[in-house]
Amino acid sequence: MLKALSILPDKCTGCMQCELACSYEHEGVFNPARSRIRVFHFHDEARYVPYTCTQCAEAWCQTACPVEAIQVNPATGAKEVLDNLCVGCKVCTIACPFGTVNYNQATGKVIKCDLCGGDPACARYCPTGAITYVDADLTAYERMRTWAARTDTQAQATA
């Protein structure tokens, strides 16, 4: 069975280990600005919410891409950006309503969560279990999917 990231904001203490781990894993530097997962801090409610790509089934980024540069990794189900094909047009960055595909000016390509090929660094380094990598049918993941449905023109279509 495919696995997915499960995110439980209630367990997050805002330590930012996931952002650092992600940026180090992908970019070789400890720089939260280069992370593909982001922890939002809601001061008003004293709450932290880690947030990244949900690898949606009908991915807007993937269908919008003019050159097939976003493809599914069959082993993980992750939608991955193939750097050799990406022309940097950025249409995926506006097509994704979750804002989880971002342009990297340095490379002229886009970056997004790729589940680290099946061993996501964010989950590995999260000390509290707020981010875990679990079987895809667990309820937390389903809840993320429901968020997706709320924005959706496409999810409605599969209903």
Partner: peptide
């Protein structure tokens, strides 16, 4: 800088 897609999300969800 980033996360521009959320503008679409906010608009299209009608939240």
């Amino acid at each position: 800088p980033g996360h521009v897609g959320v503008l679409r999300g906010l608009i299209q969800s009608g939240a």
